[in-house]
Nucleic acid binder design. Structure first.
Lengths: 220, 220
DNA sequence: TTATTATGACCGACCGGTCGGTCAAAAACA
DNA sequence: TGTTTTTGACCGACCGGTCGGTCATAATAA
């Protein structure tokens, strides 16, 4: 019944990965389906056998991208390194990934624009939240370990979600600024400055006194 | 000899402002020149009397946007409020501006994509740095005042550029996350959390001891 | 043959940009 | 003052080209 037994799942992912690289090269809207087809080594019509529309394709490409990140990041979860080193390693890795291929952010911008224009779209792949979810998860895990190890202040726990979210938002923001003008500042230095400042804030002060700033949220 | 002597400067700005609103509505690439013309209440061809290309138009629109921000922000420079209040006011204003018209970020994304694709373009309007320059300037000024007033640690001074840059990057990043998924978190709360944490870090500790984290940059 | 997969020629919509021409105001003239 | 001339602002029909998406056909395997 099935003549050419094709693993649709796998081929979809192949196409999505090809799309990811092309989108990252020229941006989403500026990339034509023909270019994607060429990059994937297939005919243009074939893409539509696997994806209903160009929008569906960038959704899949984004998902593949997130999965890549996730795979590169999760080893840090159950590492036996101490939390501080893990945190620094995580962000050194992020920085490196950014410097190695700065233009992947174009994919992020592309999907962001689509979601902004059509919020309902965000639901199609579980909400735009999923993009940053894996990294946030790892960060929270590290924070929890840090608290358990007595390195971080206990109040870090109740705010770990907010801390993680802000951290990721910062990296995205500074990354966007960086690709927009790479000569303006040193990305690694800037990220590192943020991180060390954060660590100092989270850490239990050397004298055993509480470090300020993570006591709890303040509303105004 | 001249029929209706027109203030080209002013009309350019008019068109740019119209373009700004339309770009903010549908995004740069998805907006046609006809739509801009309609929004500006002029013919399509007229736009090309004032701008050489669509790219030139978004550059002008961005400049106008930055100028708007600048005008709304500079009063905070020479205010006689204390630095802490000024800082909080500044970010309350930013948050409000964001919540009032979240989609202006589409313009930022549009110009970012263009600059990433063609870095030489960034030079055309003085480098992409100029977009955030006014806010960074205000922040640095506040920080300096804070140090002078004895509120902030002296070491804040030598890092004020980095602090300001990170602050702006964070706001951009969290803003982008927010418009991408407004239901995921409370923007004001999140920005406020960051700000209070930062203030705590910058502040001279109540006991007169140095607050950690702004001692200087660390390279790794 | 039959069912499934692959393909690229094709389509209609649309877009950025151009261009010849219109129009009204100002200058020049009477 | 009235009339003619000049000129730049303004316009939208139009053009070359591109794009997302379709579909009739070919290829392939059962």
């Amino acid at each position: 019944m099935t003549p050419k037994i094709i693993n649709r799942e796998e081929k979809s992912r192949e196409i999505a990965l090809a799309a990811l690289t092309v989108f990252a090269e020229h941006g989403f809207e500026s990339t034509s389906m023909s270019q994607v087809a060429e990059a994937a080594g297939i005919g243009k019509g074939t893409i539509y056998e696997y994806f209903h529309s160009k929008t569906d394709l960038i959704i899949a490409a984004t998902a593949a991208w997130v999965q890549n990140i996730e795979e590169g990041i999760t080893p840090l979860l159950d590492s036996d390194m101490d939390p501080l080193t893990r945190l620094r390693t995580l962000f050194a890795a992020s920085t490196k990934a950014f410097l190695d291929d700065p233009k992947v952010i174009l994919v992020f911008l592309g999907i962001s624009q689509l979601v902004i224009k059509d919020p309902a779209l965000g639901q199609r792949f579980g909400g735009a939240e999923v993009i940053s979810a894996p990294i946030r998860k790892v960060i929270c895990s590290i924070l929890a370990d840090g608290v358990a190890a007595g390195l971080f202040h206990v109040h870090v726990l109740e705010n770990s979600e907010s801390i993680a979210r802000n951290l990721v938002a910062f990296v995205d923001g500074i990354g966007l600024h960086y690709v927009t003008n790479p000569h303006a500042f040193d990305l690694a230095e800037q990220i590192n400055f943020y991180l060390e400042q954060l660590i100092a804030t989270l850490s239990v002060a050397p004298n055993g006194d509480r470090s300020p700033g993570v006591r709890g949220k303040r509303n105004r």
